[in-house]
């Protein structure tokens, strides 16, 4: 049985990270269709930087660890590549420097981010893009119509956090 003849699809990626006590950080990436239906999920094992990395990366440690290291790994691993990656952590915007896929940080529509440049309203959220890739906002606005106005793009991030917590509880806490 076929669908309703729709040809335009938008695959959304939702990425979050979480710190596991004493074991470093884990990250999760959920791929959904434009209606938020889950298609694929990947999460990493915990990653902990060593002392040398802590010293040498200094203030850029989190961006490197979360954005480049964990983010790139997750993106490499998913079979369904997203059209955009949405996160709530500005550190993950660093991922955009290592991929051609737009990466955006979701903020509430009422937040001050909404007043800044390089942003795009998608569903009920405001998306802020990487400072060096603000053109992403324009590119993505062409597919904006595929997302219902009522869509809450912060909600799937909550699912990712829950899934990460469940993974930690089930696997890594043993």
């Amino acid at each position: 049985m076929s669908g309703a003849g729709k040809t335009e699809h938008l695959r959304l990626g939702f990425m979050e990270t979480m710190e596991v006590d004493g074991r470093g950080h884990i990250g999760g990436l959920l791929i959904t269709n434009q209606n938020g239906r889950p298609l694929e999920f990947q999460c990493t094992t915990p990653v902990k930087p060593n002392r040398t990395q802590e010293i040498l990366f200094g203030e850029s440690l989190r961006a490197w660890l979360l954005g480049e290291l964990i983010g790139s790994t997750l993106l490499d691993r998913v079979a369904i590549k997203p059209n955009i990656i949405i996160t709530s952590d500005p550190n993950l915007l660093e991922l955009r420097n290592h991929t051609s896929i737009p990466v955006a940080c979701a903020a509430d529509a009422k937040s001050k981010v909404a007043e800044q440049g390089g942003t795009l309203r998608l569903g009920s959220s405001i998306l802020r893009f990487h400072g060096s890739h603000e053109v992403d906002a324009e590119l993505l606005s062409q597919q904006k119509h595929l997302i219902p106005d009522s869509a809450n793009l912060a909600e799937p991030l909550e699912r990712v956090r829950e899934a990460l917590a469940e993974t930690v509880k089930t696997v890594f806490a043993r």
Partner: peptide, 10 residues
Amino acid sequence: RIPIKCIGLT
């Protein structure tokens, strides 16, 4: 890059 393992679900 530190090698990282992943757990996946389709």
